[in-house]
Design a protein around this nucleic acid. Structure first.
Lengths: 204, 204
DNA sequence: CAGCTAAAATACATGCATGTATGTATAACG
DNA sequence: CGTTATACATACATGCATGTATTTTAGCTG
């Protein structure tokens, strides 16, 4: 029923909201377009008008939430800092602090982590997340490589193991937080964990 | 076709093997029983003879692989040790060391983590994993609670945050390892990370 | 006010996975 | 050696999600 142009954009957003809700509740594969339409108070017709299919809808939802990593990290900024490790620690803690305030990011990230199969028809959409992860890991490793060059990295670590441990710690914190919910205080567990880890990077 | 009894058990195992393979390749939700049957060189009839449906097949596969956590940790053993933290660190490192040798556990755990939606029709099967996770977390927290009572836990930590950080670190290590594959040396990243974390638990 | 088109709703065709019913060959058993 | 239950394969019915075609409604334009 041909509403105004702003109205159409509004229903597009409503469809994306509904998709987030139903994907979160039922998982991606188990969710049908009818269910999303019903959640949004419409029919599948509206969805097919705005999106080509479920995959494109999923990717649109993914795009709408800028994941925390992309929000704060800038490799150039890190590589330029005088104390790279201190800056990385500081930035990471800031991400941990801000994460709980981003409801949408939280829900979408939770869908990507726990409510979506990593392969199958969603391969393309998930490849983008994996690429973003890889890209992130590479940039982190570059930071540690530079740190190693300056002799500021403890002999216990190499650039690769240091980057791997950092990524494991951060991703572990986020997934446990998303999995457990309110019982998990991201900062309370994350700050001492990362502090200890970064102290170890420096120890001679 | 009525083969001998051992033959039947053999095809049951073959079906489970095929399920692991196809689940790993395509994800759980995207896998049909026909595909599993084809991979095993049979028809769906064989599957429906041995298993009630896909969910029961999945649970059987889950049961066949004893996950690493259940393999090594025994809370009673830990609580009885004279130096609980040292024992926990030691046991954890042993798990990290042995994990790469368990091909089946690795594949099944990878399915549970990355190739299976956390909710939906598989709810029941996945609830078992979540219960096991919760149970594990509770036992770990109990260890840290005892440590705290004896005054051996640094003031920086509480039993809860310490347990959370431990679980985050371990689960982060495992998921990164499973996600990245050969590029991730579990021990090389895990040993210094956990050493640093446990040193922090002790610091006064 | 008529006509056009954007924004949906509705209707329809197709495919496919599931579950179940039935068929069948053979091992086990008396 | 005949019977029976086992271990499957095959055939069939059902439901349901998808994609597309068609229709309806209402803004916009002249």
């Amino acid at each position: 029923m041909r509403r105004t142009k702003e109205c159409a954009e509004q229903t597009r957003e409503a469809i994306l909201d509904a998709a987030e809700t139903v994907f979160f509740r039922q998982g991606v594969a188990a969710t049908t377009l009818s269910q999303i339409a019903a959640e949004a108070g419409m029919t599948r017709g509206a969805i097919y008008w705005h999106f080509e299919n479920k995959l494109e809808l999923f990717k649109a939802m993914q795009d709408r939430a800028h994941l925390p990593k992309e929000r704060l990290f800038d490799a150039g900024q890190l590589l330029g800092a005088e104390d790279m490790l201190a800056t990385l620690l500081e930035k990471t803690l800031e991400v941990l602090r801000l994460a709980p305030t981003d409801e949408r990011g939280k829900r979408v990230y939770s869908i990507l982590l726990f409510r979506c199969e990593y392969i199958g028809e969603m391969q393309e959409a998930l490849a983008r997340m994996r690429d973003s992860d890889d890209d992130f890991a590479v940039r982190i490793e570059r930071v540690f490589a530079r740190t190693e060059e300056t002799g500021a990295l403890s002999g216990e670590w190499t650039a690769k193991t240091a980057a791997n441990a950092y990524c494991a710690a951060v991703s572990g914190l986020f997934s446990q937080w998303l999995k457990i919910g309110d019982g998990f205080d991201l900062m309370a567990a994350g700050r001492p964990l990362l502090t200890a880890l970064f102290a170890s990077y420096r120890a001679r």
